[in-house]
Design a protein around this nucleic acid. Structure first.
Lengths: 144, 144
DNA sequence: TTATAAATCTATTAATTCTATAGATATTAA
DNA sequence: TTAATATCTATAGAATTAATAGATTTATAA
């Protein structure tokens, strides 16, 4: 399961993709529209800014906005920033690998093999899920 | 990420699949061979017994053993028993569904769509990963 | 120059979950 | 009757998650 923090981050980013190139958006606006606790969202957006996903402008008329085009931001990257590993086992993670105590010979571990498959499929789907595709999907479904 | 409890459960079950039809196996033996804290493993095996995955025999010469053939036990079922939902979002889970506060119209949510794909691929891979296949894989790799 | 509105930073906390352990009890086989 | 085993109840420390509070900094506009 993704953490709430991560889920909030995704929703906030989809909202900012909708407002892409329309100037900075207030935290309060996002919090209200997406039903996210404001103070919590504050910390989330700050984290996304530090990871170069967002840019911000302080002071009056300030707010947050996307650093890149919506087509350059995907769910895989967001989840890794907010929650860390995507793989279901540490010994199978590409970015957050940790050795497993249970098996001596990693290569012959039949458990790993299944989770490597899950990891690769998941990365492929999430890596292809960009903010613009998510928006397009929502607009195509809204008319139905 | 799977919990350690779940990972321990999988390793223990693979071990019991190896000893299938060779009588009950002691907790201590599994704990030692798989490097799992004994008392923790105790709770895990008890949970698997209550879920009908294992059977047990008390007293001298007792222990735990598989209730079904190794080909009838798969990772999907084990993970659901130990950790609950497999889906990455509650609003996309088949067995542990929960409504999402962030989106009004679930059907038109572009985020859900991606996670439904991840869920289905994951279930398909894990559902097909049975204990006997895991064992076969290990034996085929051990000779290399 | 000043007032205001916004992000930023530091700290804290409540709740929950995870991981693990301790000790008493029940059961079975020899 | 004894020893070996699972079973049950309770507990607890650690880590993580989710959320809040309040002070500070920065930028804009009047």
């Amino acid at each position: 399961m993704l953490s709430k923090k991560c889920k909030y981050a995704i929703h906030a980013l989809v909202y900012l993709a909708e407002k892409y190139q329309q100037g900075p958006v207030h935290i309060s606006e996002i919090a209200q529209k997406k039903h996210i606790p404001k103070k919590f969202l504050e910390a989330i957006l700050l984290e996304l800014r530090k990871s170069k996903v967002l840019l911000s402008k302080k002071g009056k008329g300030g707010g947050y906005y996307l650093h890149q085009k919506p087509s350059d931001v995907n769910l895989m990257d967001i989840i890794r920033i907010m929650d860390g590993a995507i793989a279901l086992l540490p010994c199978v993670s590409l970015n957050y690998y940790e050795k497993c105590d249970e098996c001596r010979n990693e290569k012959s571990c039949g458990i790993r093999d299944s989770f490597i498959q899950v990891r690769d499929k998941t990365l492929s789907i999430l890596g292809g899920s960009t903010l613009d595709k998510i928006l397009k999907y929502e607009k195509s479904m809204a008319s139905k």
